[in-house]
Design a protein around this nucleic acid. Structure first.
Lengths: 253, 253
DNA sequence: CGATTGCTTGAGTGTCATCAACTAGAGTGG
DNA sequence: CCACTCTAGTTGATGACACTCAAGCAATCG
């Protein structure tokens, strides 16, 4: 209830503080002392919601902020020489977008809202400065970036080695895990991206994505209704993905 | 001459200082003041050379250091459920290995020497601590990680969207750029990895890699002699790669 | 010197992309 | 309110690209 309010009353500084944000345990504030959260809070700007299709930033623009997704979903992509887009990631609430811009001070990708989406803007120069005084914040930043690196590497494995079934299964399981982490159902959720975007992301044709999903449904691995997905047979999906699925973090060999 | 000495006389603290290292302009010390380089220098441990096939660290081990390659080459990989290795990256001199371990305090991949290789070990806790006092070092660390993220994303595009020819061409051009950056010939170099490793990395079968390379040679794009590569027709290779080749950094749209 | 490993080349096959047609739903405007 | 358009998704037919299997060659190694 009040959550819905917070979303629209984006001007209210009171309701949008990190302290009160349901995502604080997943987001940057993780492991920060209360007083430190307040400091972080002060440099964050809550932005007005993006509508579906609006850009958060564009490839080539000067980098000055990273963004934490508060609600909704974003995709990042870049444009190839042929003018077609190549999706490099989807971002759910609590996740940080824009980190790849630090290196060259330019966003190497564009970020676009897949649905109505609210974000917290975190000016990077301030964040960097602040992280000098709050060791746990710096540590958290390093961790987030490190995690992104190992996630991307898992994605590379997926793209390089997996077949269509395994790709789609991995994708669904990955989303499932991300929903679960935020307290939502791991088995039942809504895809905010189109089949085309899934295919683009996974390196598959739309038709292939559609066929795989249909087949999964026939084999009673999942139940599909448009964008609504319900995972029925988790073990079977996991078997498709292979053990090293959701980030290789299991592999404490 | 003296470089060769430095490599073997790894105990000598004098010859192995960052200050004297030919890579300092590319490596972490980049943009550090002399006194700061000295501080960095003090936390770095030069290790004895790894022989071909030796591990620098193994997937699942506790993370405590990142490593800068001084000479030679490393590959990182993880082991799938089926026991086969999946190469996630190759590392040349001046490049940092192990950053993906920060998040979970465990290396999510293994690192192995492709040839005789020397590295500088940088205990991460010290590095983190030091970076609090040297803003430019912290900035450099963020940049290195950010760069890794955008490079990996380019790799994802390559794996997802490119055909065999484009993959191999991208790979060669990427190596070429990395050699050039370190002052070596951009057109003539030696592959330190096998065809099998290239294929594994690019998501191709060995046979395909072999065939593509042979064909490139027939079409006089490159000249090959075992592991020795000479790029003859740069424009044509670049055309294969597509404009957004070596990191999409060109795309200041 | 046989054995092993890395690379190459050939032949056959399968997975997935492409092309094409069709359906359903949403938005538009007369 | 009903055509009209446009987009997203599905399904089928066909073919290409890259994988697999197989064999052979060269170099290295024990």
């Amino acid at each position: 209830m009040s959550a819905t309010h917070t979303q629209t009353r984006f001007n209210s500084t009171l309701t949008s503080q990190c302290q009160n944000c349901s995502l604080s345990a997943l987001c940057l504030p993780l492991a920060l002392a209360d007083e430190d959260i307040n400091k972080l809070d002060q440099i964050i700007e809550r932005k007005k919601p993006l509508k579906k299709g609006e850009f958060l930033f564009r490839q080539g623009e000067t980098f000055d902020s990273v963004f934490a997704v508060r609600s909704g979903t974003l995709k990042t992509f870049n444009i190839t020489s042929l003018g077609e887009e190549q999706i490099t990631g989807f971002y759910c609430p609590s996740e940080l977008v824009g980190l790849s811009g630090i290196d060259e001070n330019i966003y190497p990708v564009s970020a676009k809202a897949l649905e109505t989406t609210t974000v917290c803007e975190i000016p990077f120069s301030h964040l960097e400065e602040l992280s000098s005084h709050i060791p746990s914040l710096k540590r958290q930043l390093f961790k987030v970036m490190s995690r992104k690196i190992s996630d991307d590497q898992q994605m590379m494995v997926l793209l390089g080695k997996k077949n269509a079934d395994e790709k789609v299964a991995s994708f669904l399981l990955n989303l499932s895990n991300r929903f679960k982490k935020r307290g939502y159902s791991a088995s039942s959720f809504r895809l905010s991206m189109s089949r085309g975007e899934i295919g683009n992301y996974l390196g598959l044709a739309v038709e292939t994505v559609s066929r795989v999903i249909t087949r999964f449904q026939k084999n009673e691995l999942i139940h599909v209704d448009g964008k609504e997905i319900e995972i029925i047979n988790f073990p079977e999906i996991q078997k498709l993905v292979g053990v090293a699925s959701d980030c290789g973090k299991i592999a404490h060999i």
